[in-house]
Amino acid sequence: MDSPEVTFTLAYLVFAVCFVFTPNEFHAAGLTVQNLLSGWLGSEDAAFVPFHLRRTAATLLCHSLLPLGYYVGMCLAASEKRLHALSQAPEAWRLFLLLAVTLPSIACILIYYWSRDRWACHPLARTLALYALPQSGWQAVASSVNTEFRRIDKFATGAPGARVIVTDTWVMKVTTYRVHVAQQQDVHLTVTESRQHELSPDSNLPVQLLTIRVASTNPAVQAFDIWLNSTEYGELCEKLRAPIRRAAHVVIHQSLGDLFLETFASLVEVNPAYSVPSSQELEACIGCMQTRASVKLVKTCQEAATGECQQCYCRPMWCLTCMGKWFASRQDPLRPDTWLASRVPCPTCRARFCILDVCTVR
């Protein structure tokens, strides 16, 4: 492949990936299916269910057209290959064109099936029909969902491709191609997993992500997982009627302080350890008096005579948790993004230290 083909291929690949997995920059530029087709889709706030019936169909069709768009672009970028003349195009490109035409054809057939009987065959409509009363249809349930979504007291969070919405009656997850719906009174929610990330890409702060399994007592309703920041866990619990069960191995940190202590401990674990002299006996932590002292401040971030940090000559007197709480207590609560890189005085001798100077004892 020569330069124009490579350039176009790489550019189109980046565009396609960003169009499917829309980053914030694409949202800001309006390069999303919702924005490009806003006139036909309508307003989500005005009619939640009709909006997503059309949105999922339009998204499926637009994404299925991406391979065909690549082929058309290559006809212009690599005109010497004569891809516009099928009889002269290479065999591999003809097979690719067949695939590029087949995908939107299948998508159109599926969308036509969904739209029959006023969208009654759409997966969202079929799920809502499971909650309809005998004398009514799925449209009545959809009207209830629309009404509750318009209320300002709903719980809503998450990225555009995995939004979580909880109203007084419904638990919903909005994904790129589907909307999962379950009625609150029929579901069991279980925190199945927690993942700790030292830095969030949005705020440069530690973050804990929870995976919550939403399973309905109705076997016809498919179970689904929602992902949630642990700091929003309390707000979610307030909106739910039933308690959330928790797997035995899952620990939830609902405050920024809890997240910082977890990150503080993980960073200290990779610092060099401090060997306690055999003649020295470790005493109880003077902060909590519950556990033995387990950390010693040793300047390891820089040479002894350089930098802002100072050498601490105190014996080990603090446990890791209490030292982490002391470190957090000396921070500016309005600037949590600076906590990990800051320096604080030793709680005993006031020598300044950073996280790199906190060493576990052995």
Rank of each mutant, 00 (worst) to 15 (best):
F149K: 05
P134F: 07
K154G: 01
I152W: 04
S136Q: 11
V141P: 07
A215P: 09
T167N: 10
Y177E: 09
H188K: 09
N204P: 05
L130T: 11
W170L: 03
V141F: 01
T192C: 11
R150N: 09
L199F: 11
T176P: 13
A142N: 05
V141T: 07
T175H: 07
M172D: 07
Y177L: 15
V164A: 05
D168Y: 08
G161Q: 06
L133W: 04
Y131M: 12
T147Y: 08
I212A: 09
S200E: 09
R151P: 00
P160Y: 03
V171I: 15
L205K: 13
T157V: 06
V181K: 09
E198L: 14
R126V: 04
V141D: 02
R178S: 05
V191Y: 12
A156D: 03
V145S: 03
V164P: 00
A159G: 00
T190L: 13
G158H: 05
V174P: 03
V191N: 10
V141H: 00
Q135I: 00
A142M: 01
R151W: 05
L199A: 09
V164H: 00
A156I: 08
V171A: 05
E198W: 13
K173E: 04
D186M: 09
D153Y: 02
D168N: 14
I165M: 06
P206N: 14
H188L: 12
I152F: 07
Y177P: 11
V166Q: 02
A182D: 05
R150L: 03
Q184S: 07
V164W: 01
D186A: 11
L210A: 08
T190Y: 04
Q183Y: 04
K154A: 01
A132N: 06
K154D: 01
T176S: 14
T127D: 12
L209W: 12
L199R: 13
